[in-house]
Lab assay of single mutants.
Amino acid sequence: DEDSERELEKLRKNNASKEEIKEVLKRLGFSEDEAKKLAEKAG
């Protein structure tokens, strides 16, 4: 959803580590696997 998109955008701009991105995604309700895949894509 839009909030998670914004959250990811912010992380990308701040050069967050894949680990940080994954944690945020998991907080947003993604499964471990989904979060890992998305973090890879974002990283």
Rank of each mutant, 00 (worst) to 15 (best):
E5N: 09
L11Q: 06
L8T: 04
E9I: 07
D1F: 14
G43T: 14
A35R: 01
N14T: 09
K13E: 12
G43W: 15
K10V: 03
E20V: 08
V24E: 10
A42C: 14
K36F: 08
L25W: 00
E2R: 12
D33R: 01
D3Y: 11
E19Y: 00
A16L: 10
D3A: 11
S17N: 06
L25I: 06
I21P: 02
R27W: 01
K36D: 15
N14Y: 01
N15R: 06
A42S: 10
A39R: 02
K26F: 00
K36A: 14
R6V: 10
E20I: 06
S4T: 15
E9H: 02
E34D: 10
N15K: 07
K22S: 03
R12I: 15
S31E: 07
K18Y: 15
E32V: 00
E19S: 07
K41M: 13
E9K: 05
S31G: 06
D33K: 02
E7Q: 09
A16Q: 05
V24M: 14
K22I: 15
K36Y: 04
R12Y: 09
E19P: 02
A39D: 05
K36E: 15
E23F: 00
E40F: 00
S4E: 08
S17E: 05
K41D: 13
E19H: 06
A16D: 03
R27E: 10
G43V: 14
E2A: 11
K26M: 13
G43P: 10
L28T: 01
R6P: 07
L25E: 07
A39K: 02
E40S: 05
E34I: 07
S4N: 09
E34Q: 08
E23N: 06
D1E: 11
K22N: 07
V24S: 11
E20N: 04
E5W: 15
E20R: 07
D33Y: 02
E19G: 02
L38I: 13
E32I: 00
F30M: 08
K26Y: 00
R6G: 08
L11I: 07
K22F: 15
E32N: 01
A42M: 15
A35I: 13
L38N: 02
S17F: 05
E5K: 12
R6H: 10
K22Y: 15
A39T: 08
D3R: 12
E19C: 08
E40Q: 04
K41H: 12
G43K: 09
E5H: 11
E5Y: 14
L25P: 01
E23M: 00
E23V: 01
V24Q: 10
A35L: 06
K26I: 15
N14E: 09
L11T: 08
E9G: 07
K41Q: 13
E19I: 04
S31W: 02
E23Q: 03
E32M: 00
G43L: 13
E40W: 00
K10H: 11
E9S: 04
R27D: 10
D3P: 08
E19Q: 07
V24C: 14
D1T: 13
K37I: 12
G29L: 00
A42I: 15
E5S: 11
S31D: 08
E5D: 11
L28H: 02
R6Q: 08
L11Y: 01
E34P: 01
L38V: 08
N15Q: 10
K37L: 12
A35G: 03
D3G: 08
R12Q: 12
A39N: 04
E5L: 15
E34M: 09
E5Q: 12
K18E: 13
D1N: 12
E9L: 00
I21D: 02
A39E: 04
L38M: 12
A35N: 02
D3H: 10
E23C: 10
G43R: 09
D33V: 07
G29D: 02
V24F: 14
V24G: 08
I21H: 01
A42Q: 11
A16M: 10
K22E: 15
L25S: 04
A35M: 05
D33T: 06
G29W: 00
L38S: 03
D3Q: 11
K41A: 13
S31H: 03
L38F: 05
K10C: 15
K10F: 08
K41E: 14
A16R: 06
N14C: 15
E34C: 13
K18D: 10
S4P: 13
S31I: 04
G29E: 03
A39W: 03
F30L: 08
R6E: 09
R27G: 14
K18L: 14
A42D: 11
S31K: 03
N14S: 13
F30H: 03
A16I: 06
K37E: 12
E19T: 07
D1K: 14
S17W: 05
E23D: 10
E5G: 08
G43F: 15
A35S: 05
D33M: 03
K10E: 12
E2T: 12
E5R: 12
L28W: 01
A39H: 02
F30E: 02
N14L: 08
E2K: 10
A16P: 03
V24D: 07
L8N: 04
K22G: 00
G29V: 00
E2C: 14
N15A: 09
A35W: 07
K13M: 07
A39F: 07
V24W: 06
K22H: 06
D33L: 05
R27T: 06
D3L: 11
E20H: 07
E40D: 11
E2Q: 12
D33E: 13
L8A: 02
E34S: 03
G43S: 12
D1A: 12
E5A: 10
K13C: 14
N14A: 13
L38C: 14
E34T: 07
K18H: 10
S31T: 11
K13W: 03
E20K: 10
S4A: 15
E5I: 14
K36T: 15
R6F: 10
R6N: 11
A42N: 14
R6Y: 09
G29K: 00
K10A: 10
L8F: 06
E2V: 14
K18G: 07
E19M: 03
N15Y: 01
N15M: 09
L11P: 05
R27A: 12
E32P: 04
